[in-house]
């Protein structure tokens, strides 16, 4: 709509769609159990059904059909807005049932990325390191290039861990940079306390890949 009204350049549309799909994959890595992940899952499945997102069975790679994308976005918006406006519960439930599940081929594709972290939450006393972290925030060029971002945390977050967490931590030095990583078991203690669907999903994933 913003392109139609001349607010955004038409030439940028493919970039916006590609960025959308990349963001979609990023969120889906948390799984479809969490609300945002489930919403993205339904959008993804809808676009696949409409042929706006395609998968090459030979390579397992996904691609965008830029010609079909505008129509698919418009019909998705119409569908969701109609459900919301009419308050039709049965229609909403049917929508969830039809589009809310992760297809096996997508799960297989995402499983290949489990070694890549989504974000890293460091605590640092160094101004130099903190300054570098600001260059790697969510949405940064760094994230676009490397697929993960940095989210600075305060030292007080360590109060959530057992007092002897350092005895189980891994330490590694990279030149002048010393990195101390708490054990996975300690990292999951506050998550278990918070107990949100994404926390449970992450714990399931951690067990699957042998972190716990």
């Amino acid at each position: 709509m913003l392109v139609d009204h001349g607010v955004l350049p038409k030439g940028s549309l493919p970039g916006y769609y590609a960025s959308y799909l990349a963001g979609n994959f990023r969120t889906l890595r948390f799984g479809a159990a969490e609300a945002h992940g489930q919403a993205e899952m339904m959008e993804f499945n809808y676009f696949v059904e409409r042929g706006a997102i395609t998968r090459d069975a030979r390579t397992g790679r996904y691609a965008i059909d830029f010609a079909k994308m505008p129509g698919a976005v418009a019909s998705l918006a119409r569908e969701l807005l109609e459900i919301e406006a009419t308050g039709n519960r049965a229609r909403a439930e049917a929508w969830f049932n039809k589009y809310g599940t992760m297809p096996a081929d997508l799960k297989a594709a995402l499983d290949k990325t489990t070694s890549v972290p989504v974000d890293v939450d460091p605590i640092t006393e160094s101004e130099e390191v903190a300054r570098l972290c600001y260059a790697a925030l969510i949405g940064s060029e760094f994230e676009q290039r490397h697929g993960w971002h940095v989210n600075l945390m305060p030292e007080s977050v360590l109060k959530e861990f057992p007092s002897d967490w350092k005895s189980r931590a891994d330490t590694k030095e990279y030149g002048r940079l010393k990195v101390v990583v708490p054990s996975a078991a300690d990292l999951f203690i506050p998550k278990r306390k918070r107990n949100e669907p994404r926390d449970r999903a992450q714990e399931t994933w951690a067990r699957t890949v042998g972190l716990l």
Partner: peptide
């Protein structure tokens, strides 16, 4: 420890304050 940030601190808020204050001292930042 509890009174400033409350019993359930929002660590993103705490981080924004802590790192923001440290970066504020650097004129370019």
């Amino acid at each position: 420890g509890v009174s400033v940030w409350g019993p359930y601190p929002n660590y993103d808020d705490v981080a924004r304050f802590e790192y923001g204050r440290r970066m504020w001292r650097l004129p370019d930042m």
